[in-house]
Amino acid sequence: MSDESRKSYKLEVWVTAICFIIVAITGGFFSSFVVILNERFFDKVPTPEQLVQHYGESMFVAKEGLTVLGFPLHYFLLIMLSWIGVTIVGAIWCIVMDRLEEKQRA
C-alpha cells in the first residue's frame, strides 16, 4: 500500500468512525445521557408523591431544568441534534467521501 493510499484509507476509516460516534451519541444515546445525568445537573429529584400522582408506582420521572424556545433544554437538544445535527454531520461526511472518491479515481 503506497503512502497516499494508506493516508486515504486511514482518512476514510477515521472520518467514518468519528461521524458514526457523533451520530450515535446525538441520535441514539443522547436521551440516555440526559436521563442519567439529569439529576446531577439540575438536582431536581421528584418526590414519591409526584411519582405516584403522575405515573403510579411503576415509573420514575426526573424533572427538567432550563428551557429554549419554550422547550425543556434536554428535549430541544434531542430533537435538534437528532435532526439538523445528524443532517450536517452526514453532509460533511459526504463531502469528504466525494473528495476521497475523486482521489481514488485519479
Binding site: S31, Y55, M59, V61, K63, E64, G70, F71
Partner: peptide, 29 residues
C-alpha cells in the same frame, strides 16, 4: 414551544424524561 408552559400546567410531568433503565435507550439505538 410556547404551548409548553401551558402544557406544563395542564400535564406537569409531560416533558420530564422517564427514568427507565438506560439499556432501553441503548436497545432503541
Amino acid at each position: 414551544g410556547n404551548l409548553v408552559p401551558l402544557m406544563n400546567e395542564a400535564v406537569p410531568h409531560f416533558f420530564w424524561p422517564m427514568l427507565v433503565h438506560p439499556i432501553v435507550y441503548i436497545a432503541i439505538f
